[in-house]
Amino acid sequence: MKDINLKINGKSYRLSTNEDMRLIDVLRDELGLLGSKEGCGEGECGACTILMEGRTVNACMVMAFQTDEKEIITIEGLSNGEQLHPIQQAFIEIGAVQCGFCTPGMILSAKAILDKDTNPTREMIRQGISGNLCRCTGYAKIVDAIELAGKLLRNGGNNCEA
């Protein structure tokens, strides 16, 4: 057992974890944060993508003990109560969600792209989400949505009509 301190979506947690526990297990099984999905479990599909210290990681490839004193953002940390994050709003607006399994990871990869640059090229967007597999959408609407999200962020809100 190892005790860890970590900050998830701005909230501090102190947890006792097994050595063989992965971050995805902590999130889903210990804390009930079911937004992050486990797809392949071997770091290939990106469904469990979360932000750790501002960078995208696959939560299935990070051991729980490695997250000690780390700051983590999951899909649950994006909206502000009922107010959706501009990226979430843009995904809905464009129709970038089909079955939805890749969506939480995809949105966090989008956040990592837009945190660096709110006006990325389509190529930069494609590069940034290339670690997130999607079987339904063909990615086109996802790229469109991230472009729109960038525009919303530049305008400082999530009003798609503006």
């Binding site: 464009i94 129709g95 089909q98 999607c134 079987r135 339904c136 959408t137 063909g138 990615y139 086109a140 609407k141």
Partner: peptide, 14 residues
């Protein structure tokens, strides 16, 4: 139409 486009993109990728 938007959803049809989504189906077309997805079918193409598959």
């Amino acid at each position: 139409p938007e959803m049809i486009e989504g189906q077309m993109d997805g079918g193409f990728a598959m």
